[in-house]
Design a protein around this nucleic acid. Structure first.
Length: 213
DNA sequence: TGTCCGATTGGT
DNA sequence: CCAATCGGACAG
């Protein structure tokens, strides 16, 4: 079995290092997996776009406080699941939303669950990838470092030139937290979810970083 | 208990 | 562009 990932990083660094790694789901006999191509960092209580904004702590987001390497899965719009990986130390309230993967293993199973869609759309978007991999609330809080159901395996680390950044999706337009370039994706990747990804390099957002503390 | 809404998606 | 669909957050 491949080496597993180091999770104990702040959300932005974890987001960066997750790109190019492989999300693996074991479902009975089937092994489903995909290369992570798009993520979003949610930094913690000071990040007003985070579910943990202002230190909010509720039954839904409880697992965001578990500390690095846990699953945070929640239901959105009453019908889709979003899958996050927690970051940082326990009680940090930080996580990385996995927004898209490039299907690798178990594509037939994914197709069966997702219906007749283009290959590139199979896992393109947080709700779609959750459905394709059979991720729902019952995985919420699972420890990905030891789980037999869901984990991340190491792929090659992407060079910075392959990483682009932009504002996170679906947060409206008001405020610096909606604008902050905390969405990371692989440049020119067909499996990235929404269009409108600006061509801002990862190194360039380091200048923004001071404003996010 | 009542009201409002969303880190989305798929079909007009 | 808009409806689907419902658990959870929050006000009262």
């Amino acid at each position: 079995m491949s080496r597993r990932l180091r999770y104990n990083l702040d959300a932005l660094d974890l987001a960066r290092s997750l790109l190019g790694q492989y999300l693996v789901r074991k479902q009975g006999r089937h092994r489903l997996s995909g290369r992570i191509v798009e993520v979003e960092a949610y930094l913690g209580p000071h990040d007003l776009a985070s579910h943990t904004a202002m230190g909010r702590r509720t039954p839904r987001n409880e697992s965001m406080y578990l500390g690095a390497g846990h699953a945070y899965v929640y239901l959105i719009y009453g019908m889709h699941h979003c899958f996050n990986i927690t970051a940082g130390r326990p009680d940090t309230g930080a996580a990385v939303l996995v927004r898209a993967i490039e299907p690798v293993e178990g594509v037939e199973v994914m197709r069966q669950v997702r219906g007749e869609v283009r290959h590139r759309d199979l896992c393109r978007g947080p709700g779609r990838l959750s459905k394709a991999l059979g991720i729902s609330r019952d995985l919420d809080g699972d420890d990905l470092r030891h789980s037999q159901d869901l984990w991340v395996e190491r792929g090659d680390r992407l060079p910075d030139e392959r990483v682009i950044c932009g504002p996170r999706v679906g947060l409206g337009q008001a405020g610096k937290w909606a604008e902050a370039p905390l969405r990371l994706a692989i440049r020119d990747c067909l499996f990235v979810s929404a269009p409108g990804m600006p061509q801002i390099g990862f190194n360039d957002i380091r200048t923004h970083e001071f404003a996010l503390k």
